[in-house]
Design a protein around this nucleic acid. Structure first.
Length: 435
RNA sequence: CGGGGAGUGGCGCAGCCUGGUAGCGCAUCUGGUUUGGGACCAGAGGGCCGGAGGUUCGAAUCCUCUCUCCCCGACCA
């Protein structure tokens, strides 16, 4: 993408609304703009990141055997009356009426709807187990939205729902999602530690929160440093073994922290810090299948309510959380797997015909090689271009200038390490293809 | 929802107390000089001062009401 054709409103100054670093950087880097309290427009660059995160989540869900569908944002009040939550939910639920005075709501979550859909399509144990998910916008009318997209009112969430014939099956579904979550977050280049959670508003006994470690996190966390060494991507698909491994190591937020258990962790492995919740998984039994009258027939002819679990990932929140965990004084540092572009190509002198020609050629070759490239072909000074690239945080910067071209080299800069190397063009391209 | 703060060109702010031609920095546009880490000079454009009432010869400024946004707390993916 040529920057001269793009929409990237980068600012030098930080809007006064922003307090935390991720919010400031998201505004400065032209990722989002607030349109109302807790509601954001995703600008082109921000949207690309959102889509990248979504895609990692999707791939790991599919790999875990979950099936994607898409449910609407608007739901009818009647659906929620079936579970009794229409009255129980409180003012966080945005309630609206249509022109016929029918009561509607903007979905804060989808247990009722998925249960209703699945109930009407499934009657036999042969159709279980299943895990269904979708990635959709939600709305919770928070009393006080803040921290940019980390605590907005409108947010993008992946929510999955599992249906099993019995508790043993439901536990397997839960373990499978646990593994999928650990792989998902690891692929995004962040450390997310699973922590036993107190049962939330949904209820149930098996529950984990996934906390991204970041100094500006909202909650205090305590965990065993062994979590840092585990490689989930390489873990076998034995989800139950993984669950046992996770369960054997201590990790808790301040809400569930237990000093007695904490004492048993060797001192040199004790880690204490702050974190941001980016995922939450629950097993909650028959709460919805029972209240909404979903039954399936077992092999021996009994009618049972399926055992359910739900599994959420805050997709839009992750954008903020990842920035909290990955930035420096110059701007964002995107992990490569979710970076909006892999390479920022800088033409140092747009007014120099030979330099521009060389940069154009390199751009064409990068595009031809399928490398996502943001090409700064604006007629700006070098310094301004460097500052722009640093703030938007693309993993690689490829700098093409007259000085280097005289020597037949370009400069390749790694945003994470700051390392800069002069390389012949061909070699730089080879390295980018390999990276 | 309790407590506090703020709405003035796209962004950051001053002006308000003590009413009288709406200002500064950044950004934008034009011309020139520049060009490897957010250049410089000269010029230009852009604002019914959140909205509605009121007081006054005259309101960004004073009064009343209202809307919105932000911060602290309680609450939350």
């Amino acid at each position: 993408m040529r920057l001269t054709k793009y929409f990237l409103p980068v600012t030098k100054e930080t809007p006064s609304d922003a307090q935390i670093v991720s919010h400031k950087l998201m505004l400065r880097a032209g990722l989002v703009r607030q349109t109302a309290a807790g509601i954001y427009a995703w600008l082109p660059l921000g949207l690309r990141v959102l889509r990248k995160i979504e895609e990692v989540v999707r791939e790991e869900q599919n790999r875990a055997g979950a099936v994607e569908l898409l449910m609407p944002t608007l739901q009818s009040a009647d659906l929620w009356r079936q579970s009794g939550r229409y009255d129980a939910y409180g003012p966080e639920m945005l309630r609206i009426k249509d022109r016929h005075d029918r009561e509607m709501l903007y979905g804060p979550t989808n247990e009722e709807m998925i249960t209703s859909l699945f109930r009407d399509g499934v009657k036999s144990y042969r159709d279980l187990p299943r895990t269904l998910y979708h990635i959709q916008w939600k709305f919770r009318d928070e009393v006080r939205p803040r921290f940019g997209v980390m605590r907005g009112r409108e947010f993008l969430m992946k929510d999955a729902y599992s249906f099993d014939i019995d508790e043993a099956g439901a536990r397997q579904s839960y373990y499978t999602q646990l593994l999928a979550y650990l792989r998902t977050f690891q692929r995004m280049g962040i450390k997310a530690v699973p922590m036993k959670a107190a049962s939330g508003p949904i209820g149930g006994d098996l529950s984990h929160e996934f906390i991204v470690l970041a100094p500006t996190g909202e909650s205090e966390v305590f965990y065993d440093s062994r979590f840092e060494d585990l490689d989930w991507k390489a873990t076998s698909d034995d989800a139950e073994a993984l669950f046992n491994q996770v369960s054997s190591l201590y990790a808790a937020t301040d809400e569930t922290h237990d000093e007695t258990l904490w004492k048993d962790v060797p001192d040199d492995r004790k880690r204490q810090g702050r974190g941001i919740e980016v995922g939450h998984i629950f097993y909650f039994g028959t709460k919805y299948s029972a209240s909404m009258g979903m039954t399936v027939q077992t092999a021996d002819g009994r009618q049972v309510h399926p055992e359910m679990g739900s599994y959420g990932v805050g997709v839009s929140r992750l954008v903020g959380a990842i920035i909290e965990a990955s930035h420096d004084e110059n701007g964002i540092i995107w992990p490569e797997s979710i970076a909006p572009f892999k390479v920022g190509l800088i033409n140092m002198r747009a007014d120099d015909a030979s330099c521009a020609k060389a940069a154009d050629e390199i751009y064409a070759r990068l595009e031809g090689a399928g490398i996502e490239t943001l090409y700064d072909d604006r007629d700006e000074r070098g310094g301004a271009k460097f500052a722009t690239m640093d703030v938007i945080g693309l993993p690689w910067q490829l700098i093409v200038g007259p000085k280097g071209l005289e020597k037949g080299v370009v400069e390749l800069k790694n945003r994470t390490t700051g390392e800069r190397r002069e390389l012949p063009v061909d070699q730089a391209l080879v390295e980018l293809c390999a990276a």
